[in-house]
Write a protein that binds this DNA or RNA. Structure first.
Lengths: 199, 199
DNA sequence: TTTTATCTTGAACGATCGTTCAAGGGTAGT
DNA sequence: ACTACCCTTGAACGATCGTTCAAGATAAAA
């Protein structure tokens, strides 16, 4: 790119934050143009369409989320405490003031229909990716005896994924940070308690 | 109304199902016109605006949900089994083939922003109403010894509300009905188990 | 400096959005 | 049969949607 004026990665980053905050339909291409300071011609030459840009956005979101999870797990004394820190940070929001406490992928599958079948399918696939990342962490936690080994990491990850969806959505609905933290503690007690996870 | 051609209640019912399936933004007034077989003039004379009609819709949804919950609780051998049947029916969907496994109010707070501040606030308020209904049921379950009495019904309802949000959203993401039912069982084990709910 | 290739610009397009309103239709009361 | 009143109709409005494209700007190659 001999004549590249814009930083495409930074553009995707800003577009991601905007889509995350407002959703797919409520974010107009004119909003995007203003946020990333590009004119329609450049945007369409670079990304192709609103759908394609949104696709880049949810991919970027997922990649960043995975990185953040792994960073917490690596820098913590144990996989499980790293996992908890990741969840608390996702909801309470550290310095990285996120556009929403809700998961961007959950917002996406909540909003989109078959009118955007490709995006919907991809959001579901990316959520499965994140679930796999949870399974990896939980498998490591099992080997360290932090979590009941009688249940498969896949089941535990499924359970955790569902809990995180609920927690982040609940946090978006209700203001009290204290009560949400209490719910997080409740979730982790049910996760470490061995006898109450099995169906 | 000496000259009323349309059944307004049935119109609200159909509009609710459409909004529930497609969300606020993706549902156009022309979609509504077709679904309820009314022309724009009549719709606006009756309901005032798209926002006002959507407000009626989420109120109707909440009212129906509460009725369905109470019906399950009354017709069951115990409050807790009624609660579980309500949840299973909400997700698996009985004969009432719902437009979505996801909670309409969750979809609403996931999609809307401050651009529709009134609707957003009302959806949150209606979710609190449902949480109160859960608290009533859980208090009755406590008196019957089905649920740990050491925790307040308000906390338990908060916990349950969060779980339902997660369960229904997860069910919408992932196809396997079997795995979702397994998760529901897991939730109820954590709800009945006394030692693992406290933070 | 001139040419060439690449990227950017912004006006403009057709489609669709939520909404309005003058005109028409139908029922009830006289 | 006539009036009065309510409800319904559907064309039309301005705004905004996602997207396109000819023209201009810019930097590397010759």
């Amino acid at each position: 790119m001999p004549n590249a004026k814009y930083d495409h990665q930074e553009a995707i980053n800003k577009a991601t934050r905007l889509f995350w905050a407002k959703g797919f339909h409520a974010t107009s291409m004119r909003n995007i143009q203003q946020a990333i300071d590009m004119r329609p011609g450049s945007i369409y030459a670079t990304f192709g369409s609103k759908e394609a840009l949104f696709s880049k956005a949810i991919q970027h979101y997922t990649s960043t989320s995975k990185d953040r999870l792994n960073a917490y797990v690596e820098s913590s004394t144990s996989p499980l405490t790293g996992l908890k820190k990741f969840i608390e940070d996702s909801i309470a929001g550290g310095q990285t003031s996120a556009p929403s406490t809700m998961c961007m992928l959950v917002k996406t599958i909540a909003e989109l229909t078959d009118d955007n079948a490709d995006l919907l399918a991809e959001a579901k696939r990316l959520l499965q990716d994140l679930e796999s990342a949870f399974a990896d962490v939980l498998a490591r936690a099992q080997k360290m005896g932090e979590v009941d080994a009688a249940r498969s990491p896949e089941y535990l990850a499924r359970y955790l994924q569902m809990q995180i969806m609920g927690l982040r959505t609940y946090a978006h609905m209700q203001g009290s940070k204290e009560q949400v933290m209490e719910l997080i503690d409740g979730v982790f007690h049910s996760l470490t308690g061995q006898e109450h996870l099995s169906p």
